[in-house]
Amino acid sequence: MAIAGVPATAYEMVRVLEHSFKYYRRTQLQELSFDGKLRAISKLLKDNVPAALAGTGAVVPVFAGYDLEQGSAKIYFYDILGAEFEGVEYAVSGSGSPTIRGILHYLNTWGDQPLNRLPEEQAMVQALRLLTSAAEFDSATGGVNREASLYPVIKLITGAGVQTVPDATLKPLYESQVVRYV
């Protein structure tokens, strides 16, 4: 799950979700279904509506996961009221998202290949480029800080689980395929 919005609310949501999914698995001796997990997020967002409207706790998450029952990866995005929408190829969230939503649409429709056909490395390069573009036009999107070796967090989700891409992998990708010296 990735979030745009207030960290305090988001962290608490993730803590609640993690704990309740584990509790479910341990008591019921089976994993909560993918749909069950989607509903759990919706419910937390719905409970959070008053805080979101008061301007103190709005969170807009993107939920990506691998549905083991169906054997396919899925992406969902939410509005602040808790409605879930499946983004078939991509989903974006946050203040910088309008900038890159257009790019994603363009790439997916008229690019060399649809986004869901991209090999892993290409997908990571695209993600880094898109985040850099968003940071260019949106002051609230953090960009890459090379002096401090700060790179975005990229996670790969497969049937085997979630894996964080180390900075050591991102650094060469960023330097060879994202940076343009003017």
Binding site: R15, V16, H19, K22, Y23, R26, T27
Partner: peptide
């Protein structure tokens, strides 16, 4: 169940 309950409440 009581072990699970206690552990998860404490852990949370």
């Amino acid at each position: 169940f009581s072990l699970l309950e206690m552990a998860h409440v404490e852990g949370f």
